[in-house]
Design a protein around this nucleic acid. Structure first.
Lengths: 161, 161
DNA sequence: CTTTATATGTCAACATGACTGACGTAAAAA
DNA sequence: TTTTTACGTCAGTCATGTTGACATATAAAG
């Protein structure tokens, strides 16, 4: 019987390649969240707070519904972390002008400061990885990652230029 | 005052590019875990069980310590999910032959079946993304992802061939 | 103008998976 | 023989997700 691992076996190579993809994503995500987690702990916050601060900073005046669509959690889950962030002065809510049922979300100065502090580490990590890999590799990274993301969310990443 | 977004501003472009990286990772991870989570729920398991089953399947006869190093969680946290998997017959433990303090981990047939069922979805997802992006993009993806991973774990991904 | 739908919020109960800290056992290494 | 290592367990706590029920204000439809 031929050894499935040493023979030239396209099916095995494929499986191996795909498993490496799975693992790359696991390890990258694990290491990508480690640094901000440590900072968040100083504030008594967790990863969920980071996500809210990040996306509110990125999409000023976004609605609660839009944020829920991004995070894919229930409003009750969001409510806990968002409520904390509002009470502690990192996020403000104001009624929408067109639709006054909406509570548009915005970071305060304090919120912007924390956002930058948290995300800076992650930007530095990406800057290093991008620099070491080169522009062409970054383009490939983008392509593969977009393919992993649900089609309805791909439009969040418009083509550059 | 010049609009920082419309002017040709290399610093802004860089920040935008880096933020896109952060978001690509967030969305990809979110969507990559969604399908297995649904299957796990049938068994009354969670994502933590998946990680254990995955890595034990990938590294047969691995030690508990090695698994802890990969997962970066405490032994108490691991103990709960691992204990369940052992009790329910997905994983077996046997003493190491060289070092009998070790409890080497292995999937049972049942464990292998669940592992394949869970990971198949993720492999299909990667297969699609890889096929759509092309071989060159996959190489770039690999390079960037490796750069994001802590140096001590990069050796888990040997160069192909 | 009345009804219905939508955006948001809240209360309560529960599950998962992480943590810390303390203590225990068996086997390897010094 | 003593110390260290690999692993396990008990107990308590916290963060973050869930479901389900109910409430309020406003927009949209009839």
């Amino acid at each position: 019987m031929t050894d499935v691992k040493t023979a030239i076996n396209p099916l095995f190579l494929r499986e191996e390649e795909l498993r490496q993809g799975v693992e790359l994503l696991f390890f990258a995500y694990r290491d990508f969240t480690a640094e901000p987690d440590a900072i968040l702990a100083e504030y008594g916050f967790g990863r969920a707070h980071h996500r809210v601060i990040y996306f509110v900073g990125r999409n000023p005046a976004m609605t609660v519904s839009d944020l829920l669509d991004i995070l894919r959690i229930t409003k009750q889950s969001l409510s806990r972390v968002l409520g904390q962030l509002v009470r502690e002065g990192f996020v403000v809510q104001r009624p929408g002008s067109r639709d006054r049922r909406q509570r548009l979300l915005e970071l305060t100065i304090k919120g912007v400061e924390l956002e930058r502090r948290l995300t800076e580490r992650q930007r530095v990590l990406f800057a290093k990885a991008y620099r070491d890999a080169g522009a062409e590799a970054v383009e490939g990274f983008r392509k593969v990652m977009l393919g992993l993301i649900a089609p309805e969310d791909r439009s969040r990443f418009p083509v550059k230029r």
